[in-house]
Nucleic acid binder design. Sequence first.
DNA 1: TCCATTTTTAATCAAATGATTAAAATGTTT
DNA 2: AAACATTTTAATCATTTGATTAAAAATGGA
Lengths: 210, 210
Amino acid sequence: MAKSKEAKIVDTTTEERIKAAARVVFHKKGYAATRTRDIAEEAGINLALLNYYFRSKEKLFDIIMFETIFGFMQNMAMVLNEEKSTLEKKVEMIAFNYIDFITKEPNVPIFMLSELRNNAGRLLEKLPVKQLIMTSAFFRQHQEAVAKGKITEPNPLHFLMNLLSLVVFPFIAQPLLQGISNLNETQFNQLMQERKKLIPVWVKAMMKAK
Amino acid sequence: MAKSKEAKIVDTTTEERIKAAARVVFHKKGYAATRTRDIAEEAGINLALLNYYFRSKEKLFDIIMFETIFGFMQNMAMVLNEEKSTLEKKVEMIAFNYIDFITKEPNVPIFMLSELRNNAGRLLEKLPVKQLIMTSAFFRQHQEAVAKGKITEPNPLHFLMNLLSLVVFPFIAQPLLQGISNLNETQFNQLMQERKKLIPVWVKAMMKAK
DNA sequence: TCCATTTTTAATCAAATGATTAAAATGTTT
DNA sequence: AAACATTTTAATCATTTGATTAAAAATGGA
């Protein structure tokens, strides 16, 4: 490495700049619509450097994709596995954390889910998300609440789906929702901020319904 | 047109076969990942015929995209604008119709929303969805229910978002959900069928929550 | 049957795109 | 300073891809 350790505080290495640029462009346009030249331009580097550091577009994509899924699931896995917090608290945490996260990274959900549709097998097998979530405190607490009659719907997958639906879907459908409502981006984000408090209330009510 | 009117009952015209093939491939892979050769192969035609009938990939795509959005919104607009049915009945109809529709066309939601992200303006301006939905009986009935104190959340957009979230999102996240739950496709679809009855109950409970 | 029109095909083009190469520039070690 | 290693650049390649063209085939009407 030709770069001295302390020289650049604000700047980063070429390799990191390429990764950061690739993240931006891949998230925005998806794998197929992204040109390696787009990434090079975004990073302000010579096109050949992309191949010098990452061998190919596909290998670079795999890195970005893995980090994106991991970053998305990590937070959820942590919250769902907390032994101490209540089920209600977990719902609050998920709503709060993800609405903030997706507001900052609005392209991540649709990017992730679009690309997963092509390659779910290959991309998910590296991540031990299955174990982490299906055996989580969240699911155990749900079962306990069902046993006590506090929750009517016995399938924890419905519970998780509903929570994620209410949190994530509005962002995915943002262009459509703005198209039918005339909200600008700021107003839309305000609506999403409202949902931080509303979703836990709604989920609570839903799960007691019968 | 060299084709006689009654000649083919089971078969269709070349133009229709190209459109049907384009619909399949575009829905599955999106605009950027679709090659005109993929469409030609799917349709079983010579590549040049695509340009002969539709001029360009982009023009063909615009047709498919318009029809897809229109087909998706049409049903919703109709249900939301029924003057006679109750708000609760409308929720039931949306849940029932869309779960059936998306089960048959599982790629449509993510296709539509992905492509809208690039081109929301151009693609939505042709459709008068705004008027149809924002001034619908659905929204009016919602306001009436709010006035009567039967619904706590006064913003009808939250109401519509919640309904669509619960119906559509699980399909969009299907690869991820199957990845963490080990369900096969049949089991997943059974779960979705269950939601036809569950979602109306949940939505009802949510909207009374406070 | 003959002719004009429409439809289909095979061959080809030009531009875009992922990737490579050889040389230049920069940094490190001796 | 000299030698070596790493990083960067400009030029180029081979393939893919959307589109076109000219000719052939099929079709329908006179």
